Simulated scan of single mutants.
Amino acid sequence: MSTKAIKVSLKAAKAAIQQKEFDEALLHCKAVLKEDSGNYNGLVFAGLVYAELGQFENSSTAYQDAVKASPDQPLAYQGIINLYTKHKKVKLSAGENDQLVSAYEGIITLTESSANEAKTLELYVGLANTLCSLGRAEESFNTLQKVCNKLNAEQFDVKFEAIYAAVVTTVGIAQDANIAGFADLIINCSIWFCKSPTKLDKERDSALLTMMKCFQKDSTTYDKCLKLLAQFLLSGDFTLTSLMKDLLIQIKLQTGLDDYFFFCFIHKRYYQLLFYQYYLSFRFFKLSRSSLL
């Protein structure tokens, strides 16, 4: 088969795939690969056709051969991702998850400089979730931290629904991971989630409970968590739930809020709180000045 004939067969395979004539498309793919076993497009088309026909092992083999033939092309990596996230509905084996991790890493390397925000988010969260499936919690945390930094996240946005869900999944399997090392990621994602105006009180409570449970064994991080939570609750953007009031009691006990400050805090008397903070600052200034005289 000449080069021209191979091109004609590839074009015919593509047309058959578009018409969902997968058996016919497979014949064209096999004709191409018989003449050129390393033909990248032929292997990618074959991988897609095998996946549509439910022949997942053959699909995986075709895609893996395509990656070997041309590792600097993204189509085969995307094909592997589609195979294991869209076509194959049963639980993946460890080996299949390893292939999926490699595919995510490969396509991220090739496309991250040009991919739009939505695609970047999809790829990184997919990688994090796959790493979770393999019990690799710290790598999952690192991946989620990287995408947060890459997207320059400063406030809650709908896109962080996916990041938050992946963080919760990672926390769930992070028995031996250094959770304290990822405190900012966990706290920030939880607070972003709670700030969403569409969240129910029980959803906010669940997010805060998940966050607090992460750090109970680490007093330093737990105190930091409480202080950041206090700043968050001071914003007054939403009605305090019963759980949040319980957390405020912990904040009072562990950060030394005095009774009047706490009273203003929990009853949302923010103007009184601001005047009280001004009074404390003025009193501190007078004491500091008198000590210098």
Results as ranks from 00 to 15, higher is better:
Ile186Thr: 07
Cys189Tyr: 02
Trp192Asp: 13
Phe193Trp: 09
Cys194Ala: 13
Lys195Asn: 14
Ser196Met: 12
Ser196Asp: 15
Pro197Asp: 08
Thr198Glu: 05
Thr198Pro: 01
Thr198Met: 00
Lys199Asp: 09
Lys199Thr: 14
Leu200Cys: 03
Leu200Pro: 05
Leu200Lys: 12
Glu203Ala: 12
Glu203Gln: 14
Glu203Tyr: 07
Arg204Glu: 06
Arg204Ser: 03
Asp205Ser: 07
Ser206Ala: 13
Leu208Lys: 04
Leu209Ile: 11
Leu209Ser: 02
Leu209Gly: 02
Leu209Gln: 12
Thr210Leu: 01
Met211Val: 06
Met212Ser: 07
Cys214Tyr: 01
Cys214Ile: 04
Phe215Glu: 04
Gln216Ser: 12
Gln216Met: 08
Gln216Tyr: 04
Thr220Arg: 08
Tyr222Thr: 09
Tyr222Cys: 02
Asp223Thr: 11
Asp223Lys: 15
Asp223Glu: 15
Asp223Ser: 13
Leu226Trp: 08
Lys227Glu: 11
Leu228Glu: 15
Leu228Ile: 14
Leu229His: 06
Leu233Thr: 15
Leu233Met: 10
Leu233Gln: 08
Leu234Arg: 11
Ser235Thr: 15
Gly236Tyr: 02
Gly236Phe: 01
Asp237Met: 03
Asp237Trp: 02
Thr239Pro: 01
Leu240Lys: 11
Thr241Pro: 04
Ser242Asp: 15
Ser242Leu: 11
Leu243Lys: 09
Met244Ala: 14
Met244Val: 13
Met244Arg: 08
Leu247Asp: 12
Leu247Trp: 11
Leu248Phe: 09
Leu248Val: 11
Ile249Cys: 00
Ile251Phe: 02
Gln254Leu: 03
Thr255Glu: 12
Thr255Ala: 04
Thr255Pro: 03
Gly256Pro: 00
Gly256Ile: 05
Gly256Ala: 00
Leu257Gly: 05
Tyr260Lys: 13
Tyr260Trp: 02
Phe263Arg: 06
Cys264Pro: 08
Cys264Gly: 10
Cys264Gln: 06
Cys264Phe: 05
Phe265Ile: 06
Phe265Asp: 05
Lys268Met: 09
